[in-house]
C-alpha cells in the first residue's frame, strides 16, 4: 500500500517537474522538426517544392562539396574539442585555489572572450591574422618564421586560425562549468589527500577528474554538438575558404538556404546528417564514459 503510494507520487512528481519544459519543447520544437523532416523529402527551388522521395539523399552521396564540408567538420571536431576541454580543465583547476592571488582577475580575463560581440570578434581576428597583422609581425620579430604566413589564404593555416579562434572564444566558457562543478566537491576530501601527501597532479587526476565526470561528459557532448554545428567562425573569418577548406556542414546548410538558389529541402537533409552524427557519437561516448549508476 505504502509502496504503491510512493510509486505513484514518484510518477506524478517525475512528470510534474519536467512537464513545463516538455510542453514548451513540444510546441516550439516538435512542430518545426516535423516540418523540416517533411521538407527533407522535398526538392525544388525556393518554395516551388515537390515530393522527391529519397532524391535529396541521392544528391548527398554525389555532392563533393558536402563531402568536403563533412570532412572539414570532423577534422575540427577531432582536434578542437579535446584541446579546448583539456585547457579549460587545467585553467579551472589552477583557479580553484583559495590561496591564489588575483583569482578574480584571471577568472574574468579567461572568461571574457565568449562575451565579445561577434562583429568585434570577426574584425579583430581578421586583422590579427592579416598578412601584415600582429601575429605575423610578432612571429617575425621573434625569428620564428622568415616569411609571413598567409594565414587566411592558405587552406591549412586557415583551418589553424579557425581552431585557434574557437578555442580562444570557448575555453573560458567551458572553464566556468568546471569551476562551478568544483565548488560542489567537498573540500575536506582534498584536505585529507593533502595531509596524506598525495601530490597535486594526483589529486587532480584521481580526485577532481572523476568527481567532474558528469560535467566533463556534459561539456564534451555540448562541444561536440557545437562543433558539428560550427558556423560563426568560418562565416565571419574565412567565409568557408580558401578553396572550401573551412567550409563546415552548418555553413553549407546556410549557403544552401540563403546564398545559393534556395534548396530548403536539401538543406534540411544535410541538417539531419548532423543529427545522425550526434546520435552515433553519443553512442560512442556512452560506451567510452559508461557511467556507474548509483
Amino acid at each position: 500500500m505504502a509502496h504503491s503510494h510512493l510509486a505513484r507520487s514518484e510518477k506524478i512528481n517525475g512528470w510534474g517537474f519536467v512537464m513545463p519544459a516538455l510542453v514548451l519543447i513540444g510546441i516550439f520544437m516538435i512542430y518545426p522538426i516535423v516540418w523540416s523532416l517533411w521538407m527533407s523529402f522535398q526538392t525544388g527551388r525556393g518554395m516551388q517544392l515537390s515530393f522527391g522521395g529519397l532524391a535529396n539523399i541521392t544528391r548527398l552521396t554525389q555532392d563533393p562539396i558536402f563531402i568536403r564540408a563533412l570532412t572539414n567538420t570532423l577534422i575540427f571536431l577531432a582536434i578542437q574539442v579535446p584541446v579546448m576541454l583539456v585547457l579549460a580543465l587545467l585553467f579551472a583547476n589552477a583557479l580553484n585555489d583559495s590561496k591564489l592571488w588575483g583569482r578574480g582577475f584571471f577568472r574574468t580575463a579567461i572568461f571574457l572572450p565568449c562575451v565579445t560581440s561577434l562583429v568585434a570578434y570577426s574584425v579583430i581576428f581578421k586583422s590579427m591574422f592579416a598578412g601584415d597583422g600582429i601575429v605575423n609581425q610578432t612571429l617575425l620579430a621573434l625569428n620564428l618564421i622568415d616569411v609571413p604566413i598567409a594565414w587566411l589564404a592558405d587552406p591549412f593555416w586557415a583551418k589553424v586560425v579557425i581552431v585557434t579562434a574557437i578555442t580562444w572564444r570557448w575555453t573560458g566558457y567551458n572553464m566556468i562549468f568546471y569551476l562551478a562543478a568544483m565548488q560542489n566537491i567537498d573540500r575536506s576530501i582534498y584536505e585529507a589527500a593533502r595531509i596524506d601527501g598525495v601530490p597535486a597532479w594526483a589529486r587532480f587526476w584521481y580526485l577532481t577528474v572523476p568527481m567532474l565526470k558528469p560535467v566533463i561528459l556534459f561539456t564534451s557532448i555540448i562541444s561536440t554538438i557545437g562543433t558539428l554545428q560550427l558556423f560563426d567562425e568560418p562565416n565571419l573569418i574565412t567565409l568557408g575558404g580558401p578553396s572550401d577548406s573551412t567550409l563546415t556542414l552548418s555553413l553549407y546548410i546556410y549557403n544552401l538556404s540563403f546564398k545559393f538558389m534556395p534548396s530548403f529541402g536539401y538543406a534540411a537533409t544535410v541538417s539531419y546528417v548532423i543529427v545522425i552524427l550526434v546520435a552515433l557519437l553519443s553512442i560512442l561516448q556512452f560506451f567510452a564514459v559508461r557511467e556507474r549508476r548509483t
Partner: peptide, 26 residues
Amino acid sequence: RERVFSLLLLMLSIPFAALMIPLFIM
C-alpha cells in the same frame, strides 16, 4: 523519461537554420 531525455539530446543537435522557417510560420 530516459527515452524522452535521449530524444531531447538529439533535438539539440538539429541546426537552428533548419527549423527557422517553420518556426517563423508558426
